[in-house]
Design a protein around this nucleic acid. Structure first.
Length: 117
DNA sequence: GTTGTGACATCGC
DNA sequence: CGCGATGCCACAA
């Protein structure tokens, strides 16, 4: 772990993130920032700080991902899998979900982006 | 007590 | 479209 900041109530925050990730339908992908926005502002947190770090907090949650979630459906704002050991595997899983990568290795979020329903 | 280092996003060139 | 810089913070060595 050891990402950037952990929210005051990291345990709760993580749980919420996992719930959202679990809701991402097959063939769709969500971005870290998107998930962060879907979450409510934790009470007592400087909104300014939240806006800047929330996405990383989501990343932190994914780093400790319970591996029973569709973690591979979470990508960065550019529609690409974040560089890390296992990125290769992540792409394979996405392709298996029916997500297609563009020549440059990015996913077209206009098509595969999760609307958060 | 210090230092290095991260599953990000956004803006500028 | 892509590389680089910036914002900001806790935790492991």
């Amino acid at each position: 772990m050891s990402l950037f900041t952990l929210p005051p109530d990291a345990a709760v925050f993580y749980q919420t993130v996992y719930q959202l990730v679990a809701r991402i339908p097959v063939g769709k992908v969500a971005t870290y920032g998107q998930l962060a926005r879907l979450l409510a502002y934790p009470p007592g947190i400087d909104p300014r700080v939240y806006d800047i770090l929330s996405a990383r907090w989501v990343g932190g949650a994914m780093a400790n991902c319970p591996d029973n979630l569709p973690w591979h459906r979470v990508v960065n704002s550019q529609g690409r899998v974040s560089p890390r050991p296992g990125a290769q595997k992540q792409q394979e899983l996405l392709v298996a979900d029916g997500v297609k990568f563009k020549p440059n290795g990015a996913i077209d979020l206009r098509v595969y982006g999760w609307d958060g329903q």
